[in-house]
Amino acid sequence: MTKFLDLSKDVAELTADLIDIPSVSGHEKKIADVIEESLNRQAHLNVSRFGDAIVARTELGRSERVLLAGHLDTVPLPTASNARGTVPSRWSGETLYGRGATDMKGGVAVQLALTASLTHPQKDLTFVFYDHEEVEAAKSGLLRVATRARSLLTADLAVLLEPTNGYVEAGCNGTLRLRATAEGTAAHSARAWMGENAIHKLAGLLSALQQYEPAAVDVDGLAYREGLNAVGIGGGIAGNVIPDAAYVDINYRFAPDKTPDQAEEHVRQILAGYQLTRTDAAAGARPGLGTPAVQSLVTAVGGAAQPKYGWTDVARFAQMGIPAVNFGPGDALLAHTDDEHVLASEVRKCLGALLDWLT
């Protein structure tokens, strides 16, 4: 396997090289090894590693510091036999297919290209490449760095290169996961009246979720769309047994005007009477459009700032007191799809915009 990458090559081809290194969450060591070796060949960078998270910094004594971050992991590969968004990558004209093409190896390729291009930047730069973003927050490589070496993340602005179609997406929704459980009484299904069906007890909850009308919440001039959905269900042990236990997993994507506790209280009101247990939560981030550092990036890349509907690690940076935005190549609607892809022109345009801004 390749031991290091050619960071000076076309950034779209570099994206393909990254896709060709499988890195499903929990299996990021190979890609982290390659990126660490590639960064160690850049004499102007100080490189540190924390598990499979890597931090590379310039130390030029500039008055400002910009942090550019991206995660190395992808969701699992698609299972459909005709899926094109898998590994290895595949070109169709100027369209690059492969798992992570949009989420977010195109963004990581831009980061790596910037490390090679900006050897004497006008602002000091910090590059963060981290593992375990696509899974529960407790495993996050970014959290690991923040815990072990918080000073390495100090910056005037953090830019997360998640796919945004080339627009600045400010802030992000929060995310909350709850599990609803029901208990019944097991019985032979031929004598169902002797038991109590736990699955049936959750019918009203599913109906409430289906009828729920999500809000669009204005936060600092941006409309954040919310969502409340069942994302998993289970119960039953055999085809001839009335189930005595069942569950539904619920995900609430909430606007950044709420804390996780406020979001949980809202869901409990909607699903009153059901037994709910929080399994995961991450706060959102307000847009911060009044921050000078954010304004400078929005002005430089053009267009109006947009809201980020999904949760991203801009929220983690916001909790650290660092203004943060999303800005990266690709269409977020293609992330995690069977035909995940990115246009070569989108990756090149993102790199060009950031080079112009940073120089």
Rank of each mutant, 00 (worst) to 15 (best):
L77R: 07
T58F: 10
W91R: 13
N82W: 13
V110K: 01
V55G: 08
S92E: 15
A113N: 02
L77S: 09
A101M: 05
T74P: 12
G98S: 03
T102P: 00
V55Y: 03
G61T: 04
L112N: 02
T102G: 15
A109P: 10
V66N: 01
G107E: 10
A53K: 07
Q111A: 05
L114M: 13
K105M: 08
V66G: 01
S89W: 03
L72N: 07
G70L: 09
Q111K: 00
G107N: 05
R65G: 00
A69V: 14
G107A: 09
G100K: 11
R84N: 13
T79K: 15
A56T: 09
T86S: 15
L60I: 06
V55M: 08
T74V: 11
D73L: 09
V75R: 08
V87C: 08
Y97T: 11
H71I: 06
S89Y: 11
E59G: 09
E64P: 00
A83P: 12
P76W: 12
R57C: 10
G107M: 09
T86L: 01
P88L: 02
L96Q: 05
L114A: 11
A83E: 04
S63Q: 14
L77I: 13
G100L: 11
P78V: 12
R57S: 15
G85F: 04
N82G: 02
V55S: 03
T74K: 13
A53C: 05
L77G: 11
G100M: 07
G107F: 10
A56F: 09
I54K: 14
A56S: 12
E64R: 15
G98D: 03
A109T: 03
L77N: 09
A113V: 02
T86I: 14
L96T: 04
T95D: 13
V110Y: 01
L114H: 04
E59L: 13
L60W: 04
